[in-house]
């Protein structure tokens, strides 16, 4: 049955309408969860607000569990789902660079859009920076083209890498996340006592 578009079950013209609708839902959820505030997001690194971790991990869990059952019911074909290919070295470098960006800006691309939507200048500046960053990367691409394609492992899943089933991966993820939720809840309670609470915008 699913996924619908790769199987041609939805006519081509609807693609962009669907994209728009899914985007609206995505933007709405991000904003409503408080991701339009960089201080809210950065809180995850200082222990005063773990909203990022909560939303993020809950979403990953729901998606993983959902895909698992969709697959079991035969509603979705795993093989047609796009699994992000793995290039360990460039990906680690990219993630570290993004980590730097994350801690200095407190935004990631998706959240900066929602920050723009509610009128935050830092959101606009971040997006402009994003544009510039991708431009710099593209111009300098020949310099590290080899590195960019280094260590291609193909569309490997976590389970395939570890040699276990992805169902087990899901189960481990659930346990780890639940423990993380509990621990961060404790941390947040302690940290909030020591720092003066501030007003979020």
């Amino acid at each position: 049955m699913g996924p619908l578009i790769p199987q041609g079950l939805i006519a081509g013209g609807w693609d962009f309408v669907i994209a728009l609708l899914l985007g609206i839902a995505f933007g709405f959820i991000l904003e409503a969860s408080g991701f339009s505030s960089s201080r809210n997001i950065a809180g995850v690194f200082y222990g005063y607000n773990f909203v990022v971790l909560r939303v993020f991990f809950t979403a990953v869990l729901v998606c993983m569990v959902g895909l698992m059952y969709f697959h079991y019911m035969g509603w979705i074909d795993y093989n047609l789902i796009y699994v992000l290919p793995t290039f360990p070295q460039p990906m680690i470098l990219g993630a570290v660079i993004m980590g730097f960006g994350f801690i200095s800006a407190g935004f990631c691309p998706g959240t900066s859009y929602t920050a723009m939507a509610i009128g935050k200048i830092d959101g606009f500046v971040f997006t402009a920076g994003l544009f510039l960053g991708i431009f710099i990367f593209s111009e300098a691409f020949p310099l590290f083209e080899d590195f960019y394609y280094k260590g291609n492992m193909g569309n490997i899943t976590i389970g395939e890498f570890l040699g276990i089933s992805n169902q087990l991966v899901t189960f481990i993820f659930v346990i780890v996340a639940l423990v993380a939720f509990y621990v961060t809840w404790l941390i947040e309670k302690r940290v909030r006592k020591t720092i003066t609470p501030f007003k979020f915008e």
């Binding site: 990906m91 730097f100 801690i103 997006t127 402009a128 920076g129």
Partner: peptide, 21 residues
């Protein structure tokens, strides 16, 4: 710092084949 973070995210997201989302 917001602009700097944006630039870093721009570069990093290309190496990482995507950003946080």
């Amino acid at each position: 710092f917001a602009g700097l973070g944006g630039i870093l995210f721009g570069i990093g997201s290309q190496f990482g084949r995507g950003c946080s989302s």
